[in-house]
Design a protein around this nucleic acid. Structure first.
Lengths: 230, 230
DNA sequence: AGGACGTTTCGTCACGCGGCGAACGGTGCG
DNA sequence: CGCACCGTTCGCCGCGTGACGAAACGTCCT
């Protein structure tokens, strides 16, 4: 299902574990200027004993993050290569947007709601996805447009033929859903579809909320049209 | 001394610790496609119990790597943002040059040697650094050049005035040292300086080696000129 | 209202791992 | 050749933390 996992959980964990110790992190940071430093100096930089430092350096070496360069009774450790240095530098970035809040959302609002004036939420996303897969909705450079097969199906469920055929002339806009992070149908087409569903009593407005409540009738019809919510 | 450490050892270690657990790593990998998944599903993906998964998700959330989106009795976890996804992707890269070898090097070769025909090794790096700091050597767009103050000092130690003054007209090239990963003086200026030191018996060639052995006299004079080797 | 279910919190246990002191091995210097 | 020194290996101890079961909390469904 995932696109292409770069490597497995154990490799990622092993790499993380190398950074997870303040003493090792201190050593890596001390070497980030590209210098090569003897073990004793790194032990002092990390504020640990020689024995401890030696063990850490061994792990970092075996993990491929360091290289060593033996010179008489000294052993000079350095970052394995510039890639490692660049990668360590990049560790600082994902921390910038530090404040991560817990966003509490009304369940009904997630299921179906208006986005401006068109349908959004799980239902909107499901409709967009299903109709694209069925070939009822098409995406071109101009945006989204409905195809005749969709109109036939909608009329078959009881929609007014004239008003439904009018949908063919409306343009839809791909709209990224806030909660689902998936595309759904916006623009004039999205608004018209939503209005029609409200007229047909498939959806009902909820007072004082942007939530839309699907009726039992609506859910049944939508399921027939390939739109299912888990 | 280091350029600008992005953050301290504890922050780096904390970030690493978030990845260091296979269960957490599995969860992050499962979310790398941008999906939002409920806690139970992530528990299954990580192959741990619900209680354990909940604790891990809490840590990842507080660490800023995940966001959550509460919907009724479900809690959908996702990567905090696209930056985190890109950053995780980049974790795969530094592993490619896996084989890290221990390089054993002759101590004398590291201390001082010829790089092409100029002085390199610790001594070459020390000279470059000291003379830049003293304002005897200057770096401009054209490379390195010696300044009159340096010539005066060199003549004062006994170098031939005429030959020494000639050094002012030579251009030096910044050369990155192989063992020290530091700049030293190459180019015509570097060659001329090295030749002069050999002439003055500050340095001696070692047969069958690129190593250069500083004489006691040479070390003393170099120390006077600010060039010290630890 | 009551039962089912997803999720979190709490309490407990056990393993892993980092820390150090001491001993060992190798290199350089007088 | 012996001493000094740097670094590693070994053995032991203590803390941190991940694992789970049980229980509590909150939401959905009928």
């Amino acid at each position: 299902m995932t696109a292409a996992a770069p490597f497995n959980r154990y490799q990622l964990a092993e790499l993380g574990a190398l950074l997870a110790e303040p003493a090792r992190a201190a050593m890596l940071l001390a070497l980030m200027d590209g210098s090569a430093r003897p073990a004793g100096e790194l032990a002092r930089a990390a504020d640990v004993g020689a024995a401890t430092a030696s063990a850490h350096l061994k792990r970092l070496l075996e993990g491929g993050l360091l290289g060593v360069h033996v010179q008489g009774r000294h052993r000079y450790y350095r970052l394995a290569d510039d890639e490692v240095a660049a990668w360590l530098e990049s560790m600082a970035l994902p921390r910038s947007p530090r404040p991560q809040r817990v966003v509490v959302t009304d369940p009904a609002l997630c299921r179906a709601r208006t986005c401006y004036r068109h349908l959004a939420g799980q239902l909107g996303v499901a409709m967009c996805k299903a109709w694209l897969e069925r070939g009822w909705l098409q995406s071109n450079s101009d945006g989204l447009c409905l195809l005749p097969a969709a109109v036939d199906a909608l009329i078959h469920t009881g929609w007014q033929p004239h008003a439904t055929e009018h949908l063919l002339h409306l343009r839809g806009r791909s709209c990224l859903d806030w909660t689902e992070r998936r595309l759904h149908v916006g623009g004039p087409l999205g608004v018209a579809l939503t209005d029609a569903m409200l007229d047909a009593d498939w959806l009902r407005r909820v007072s004082d909320s942007r939530a839309l409540l699907p009726s039992a009738d609506g859910l049944r019809h939508l399921a027939e049209l390939g739109v299912r919510m888990e």
